[in-house]
Nucleic acid binder design. Sequence first.
DNA 1: TATTGTTATACTCTATAACTATA
DNA 2: TATAGTTATAGAGTATAACAATA
Lengths: 139, 139
Amino acid sequence: MGEKELAELLHLVSRRLRHGYVHRLVPLGLNPGQARALRALGAADRPLRMVQLADELRIVPRSLTPVVDALEESGLVRREVDPANRRSTLVVLTDAGRAMAERAREARREAGESLFAVLSQDQRDQLSDLLSAVDAQFR
Amino acid sequence: MGEKELAELLHLVSRRLRHGYVHRLVPLGLNPGQARALRALGAADRPLRMVQLADELRIVPRSLTPVVDALEESGLVRREVDPANRRSTLVVLTDAGRAMAERAREARREAGESLFAVLSQDQRDQLSDLLSAVDAQFR
DNA sequence: TATTGTTATACTCTATAACTATA
DNA sequence: TATAGTTATAGAGTATAACAATA
């Protein structure tokens, strides 16, 4: 019955997570990609160049452009020319952006909390270790 | 360093899986959604109605329409009116479709195998149990 | 009225290729 | 020449709303 393969389970659970996350982000006016970028900038705690941010998110720079466009339009980040290298663009969190990053972080925490509610802390740690191991083989 | 949250890890690993899967499906002329539908039909081992198949895949019927369109165009399935209820459409695997479902299953097995290669069989079972538990709370 | 499926539309996530400006 | 970013384009995956046919 519950004979779902690992690959299928991973897909289903991941989609479920996104679903809960999206719902919590709607009131913030963000989509998951924007929230993820905001989080990364908040975690870095300093402006990142487009390539650095793309790398952090593991997407290609081209895919980052519309994300940063949207964030800039909402006044959450601004682009600045990198004084050290004028080819580079620094993505700088505004004060509003920093506050929003915090709210996005909270939304994700809640979505994760709700999804993994059935697991004990031990089980979550186990799951985290297993996924980390899988992820690590590609770094 | 590896301080990624569970939610983030899940997202990254799931994306990685899709990536490997997509690559293996390209030579078959399938995308993951089509392959998933084909698998479900193969597993059911009997024609399914659109709603049943959508339900199995956990997507809305509208999202299934273009998937079945593509499969039909490739001669892998055909639509038949359900004699028992003329509102319903039965999605029937052709012989070619049945063979392709098998190849898709193999492609997914390989993608999973490659992704989870770093895990022992015990660890895979653990991971499977944990994800099943998370998934089960929504059924 | 309720159900099944499709038409119409739209948004998100992601990618490759070609181009511009700068180094 | 090489790097950083954008313009252009494309394809998956998914959703909601409105509608036609059938029950």
